[in-house]
Simulated scan of single mutants.
Amino acid sequence: MEIRVGEVPVHYVEHGTGRPVLVLHGAGVDHREAEACFEPAFEGVAGLRRIYPDLPGMGRTPAPETLRSADDVLDTLLAFADEVTDGAAHLLVGHSAGAYFAQAMAARRPAEVAGLALVCPLLPGLRDVPEHRLVAGSGEIGDEVFRSYFVVRTPEMLERYERYVAPAAALVDESALERIGQRWALTAGFAPAYPGPTVVVAGRLDSTVGYAAAADLVDRSPNASLTVVDGAGHALPHERPELLRALLVEWLGRVEHSS
């Protein structure tokens, strides 16, 4: 499916009916990774319309020259949300860079967001990022990208990487991401913090963004819960799917209670 937002035709897929849930993937991949990780987490939960867009410059969503900063991408995603939700209160879920944009969208328009879920979020002020290390499996399987992403390197994780992560590499517009990345800091920041039901999930061994900055969110967000998962890295949605599902189901319960 596709919705044109200004000059950007945003490609997306969706499943189910009910309250819209926008799920935003990280950098260098496309909707297929988010879909593979979060569809099982939402399995059996009725009344949710899960929407998985390709972010600009990735998957089948182009990034024209007019997109020159993270602010431009944020504006595109906000306009996409307006179109695809038709103004209905919706949920926002993001992994990595997707969480960076999801948090900003919620801060910009809190009245339109019923709940926010941030998984291994990219944030300003990253610190205390741990060294990457193997937790389980073999250090010899997979390519360098797989080994730098996963701390659990089993044949099952390699199969997921080769099926849902690696195919997106050929679709990435590297020049566009480099152009946007030169102005990756959002000028509006995240103030005021989103006040609604929030869940933050971080991998203790996340060597991409760490977990310390994610832990800071709890002090700023009045209705946020935080889980730091041992034995998981930046690929936490692949490595700990059962725990991720439990945390998201608990969060959905809080969303329902607050509605």
Results as ranks from 00 to 15, higher is better:
residue 192 P to A: 13
residue 233 G to I: 02
residue 53 P to N: 12
residue 143 D to A: 10
residue 239 E to V: 09
residue 33 E to A: 10
residue 211 Y to K: 05
residue 11 H to Y: 15
residue 198 T to H: 03
residue 195 P to G: 12
residue 219 D to W: 08
residue 128 D to W: 02
residue 70 A to S: 15
residue 15 H to R: 15
residue 150 F to C: 12
residue 228 V to S: 06
residue 41 A to E: 05
residue 245 R to P: 06
residue 77 L to E: 05
residue 128 D to L: 04
residue 67 L to M: 13
residue 81 A to T: 11
residue 244 L to I: 09
residue 2 E to K: 15
residue 56 P to R: 00
residue 22 L to D: 01
residue 41 A to G: 11
residue 99 A to S: 09
residue 12 Y to V: 07
residue 47 G to P: 04
residue 66 T to Y: 08
residue 19 R to M: 07
residue 79 A to P: 02
residue 68 R to D: 14
residue 138 S to P: 02
residue 103 Q to I: 00
residue 150 F to N: 00
residue 135 V to L: 13
residue 140 E to K: 14
residue 151 V to L: 02
residue 65 E to G: 14
residue 211 Y to A: 15
residue 149 Y to P: 00
residue 88 A to Y: 05
residue 133 R to Q: 08
residue 70 A to T: 08
residue 186 L to Q: 01
residue 47 G to F: 07
residue 159 E to N: 01
residue 123 L to W: 09
residue 36 A to N: 01
residue 181 G to M: 11
residue 152 V to D: 04
residue 158 L to F: 03
residue 258 S to R: 14
residue 186 L to D: 08
residue 95 H to K: 02
residue 222 P to L: 11
residue 242 E to H: 12
residue 201 V to P: 01
residue 229 V to Q: 11
residue 221 S to C: 13
residue 162 E to D: 15
residue 16 G to D: 04
residue 114 A to P: 01
residue 166 A to Q: 15
residue 212 A to R: 10
residue 29 V to Q: 12
residue 254 R to H: 15
residue 207 S to E: 05
residue 25 H to C: 03
residue 250 E to C: 07
residue 203 G to M: 13
residue 92 L to W: 06
residue 6 G to Q: 02
residue 204 R to S: 10
residue 79 A to V: 00
residue 89 A to H: 12
residue 124 P to C: 13
residue 67 L to F: 11
residue 70 A to P: 07
residue 172 V to C: 07
residue 85 T to L: 08
residue 229 V to N: 03
residue 80 F to I: 03
residue 5 V to Y: 04
residue 16 G to M: 10
residue 257 H to L: 14
residue 11 H to R: 14
residue 74 L to M: 11
residue 24 L to R: 06
residue 149 Y to T: 14
residue 106 A to N: 12
residue 198 T to Q: 03
residue 29 V to T: 15
residue 199 V to N: 04
residue 21 V to S: 01
residue 171 L to E: 15
residue 19 R to L: 10
residue 28 G to S: 09
residue 79 A to D: 07
residue 225 S to D: 14
residue 114 A to L: 10
residue 183 R to Q: 14
